[in-house]
Nucleic acid binder design. Sequence first.
RNA 1: GCGCGAUUAGCUCAGUUGGUAGAGCAACCCGUUUACACCGGGAAGGUCGUAGGUUCGAGUCCUACAUCGCGCACCA
Length: 731
Amino acid sequence: MIEPDIDPKLLKPYDPKETEDRIYKMWEESGFFNPDVCIENGIADKNAETFSMVLPPPNVTGTLHLGHAATLTIEDIMVRFARMQGKRTLWIPGTDHAAIATQSKVEKILDKEEGKRKTDLGREEFLKRVEKFAQESHDTIVTQSKKMGASLDWSREAYTLDEERNFAVRTAFKKMYDDGLIYRGHRIVNWDPKGQTVISDDEIVYEERKAKMYTFRYSKDFPISISTTRPETKVGDTAVAVHPEDPRYKDYIGKTYTIEDFCGVKLEIKIVADNSVEKDFGTGALGVTPAHSQIDAEIAFRHNLPTKQVINEFAKMTVGDERILNKKTTEARTIIVEWLKNEELLENEVEVDQNISTAERTGGIIEPLPKLQWFINVNKKIADRDDKTLKELMLDAVRGGGINIIPDRFEKVYYNWIENLRDWCISRQIWYGHRIPVWYKGEEIYCGVEAPTGEGWDQDPDTLDTWFSSGLWTFSTLGWPDLNAPDFKTYHPTNMLETGYDILFFWIARMILMSTYILGEVPFKNVYLHGLVRDAQGRKMSKSLGNSLDPLELTGKYGTDAVRMSLIIGTGPGNDTKMSEDKIRAYKNYANKLWNITRFVLSSTEFIKYNDDFKDYTERESTLIEERDALIKEITKEMEEYKFYLVSEKIYQYTWSRFADVIIEESKDIFLNGTETDKNSRAQFLLNTLTKILKNLHPFMPFVTEEIWSLMPISNKKLLIVESWPKSTSL
RNA sequence: GCGCGAUUAGCUCAGUUGGUAGAGCAACCCGUUUACACCGGGAAGGUCGUAGGUUCGAGUCCUACAUCGCGCACCA
């Protein structure tokens, strides 16, 4: 049955290796990833509806993992669908400098390979190393993204730390500074002794551990016992707080006790009454350490208590005699507990579960310290924004319906986060990042987009939290601060922000903050949150478990289309996806099935000339078309509702179980025994339906569909990537 | 402590406004003069986490509870 003039390619199984790079190159050369080119070529009307989206910029800390592959796939599906609908479609690529993450990665490499620390190199030389590393990571990321088939407009690629973005950052900072939203303050901050920097509340990861809670008195004649899991901080206590209504301690309120020798340290302890103390917790009395606890600092503020720092940036003791001075906090703890025992001051010790704060990036145990840092005030009323605070702006953006979050249960999570939000600490004591645009000269302070003129100005040595620049991403990539930049005018607010739910607070919330404040408009109209990619047993993929799958290895083995399908099918928004090689294999087979379907269809319909407008279908084909078009209608609606997991499965189902197993099978009989009319009708139908399958499937499996498309006997073909999404209006 | 999610065939998941359960993978049987063995045909497999409730009717709605996972808060 196979005619000799069919493309010989089709005689062999589908070979993604031979196909994918060639196809991607063809797309790139066409320029169709760029909406301007699409308009020039009449693919999108110059006034067509827009669809714009930024790619969540991957951190330049190495290579892409399956989570990135999932992001790229979901977004590429959205983008290809929009493009096929004739929209002016823009998808912006970029990478994130990821300040702390990148710097600590390079520090590790430097230590491992050369046994050096960053201070051995100095700021300038160290930064060169980081930049080199970042560049290499960037190149890998770009190659991998292309391998996934992502139809990103590379001509608009951006970096969170490049010139344009730096200018945007300085402009945004200056505006916030002038509006009094950015301030410098002496506060208890989260200090990471390992990374030697401050971090924000959101960069803390809690780890549950067993700890000992000790109950003791400062001295024999001190009237109240207190409990703590950190006895070493007690050398910094300046008060004991009790509940005002607690009859046990009422008589002591207001008195001050001097403890001459607490393991070599003299203490002045005042008894204060504070409503924040719970009577029923522990002894009902709380030793107040204003310098090393956020809550204690608040109590100290209310009662005007002195603050006494006893721990430094290296988590070592700064007071006491040789027993504890310069000792690590953990060593000092043991020593003080021993001392309490010897002095018979320790009343009991109990094992408790404790959540310990660690730094997300370095794993260091957080040491609360009083430090002078830069903050964003989230509770200050902003005159330009109807006297709303940043918190209120962020709340209103979602509550008012300007931003729609999918799945919507995350809206609650978002509200909850905002309600608990405190001022955002934005300064970091690391070298890699945007330098704070503030200069000092003696008592003078200057904030500006450019450095001040004149002699003797020193720039603040700190850099900004990486999320500060990420927060500007939807508009800093579109030409802002130039409000007349064509991209900014055309594509902002963006239509969609698609990312993993794990960075809802880190990133999405910050973009909403920046955009509603700076521009007075939302950064995006829709948020689509996908889940984590897990292994077949549902475990998180990690190097230590040895269960992580490398996307490049998988695409090499099974083809990109198969990997994409397996990342989509069975994955609703907000739910985690389980990945296994078995699953990918199934879709590799599917790509090949499609290939063989094509082989049959092309070779058995060579006797006709394909006519896209063919009308003389027999009864049988008319029924089949009705069925097919009902499906197209259904999946088009689901595409618009972002239900890609349903669409991909339905197309799979139709092509395999219906088109191949039933329709093609019965076609064999028709071509053998049918009338000329029957044969014609069937041949036209097969070709017509195959073209529709290819179009519907293209966003999901772009490579194999584009390759087959090139073999189709259709006149006036464009590349499939810019063909029109099928309308279900035929007949 | 507050909140969220999950619980449906061995595994992964669908199940739209309530009408007595579906798909893929795996396993089982049969089949290669066939577009495709990266295949076809067939059969098998579920008291829908538990207990109540609403309803003519519940996998679907309501209430408890259980197990797992997650977020936030607390963490003296």
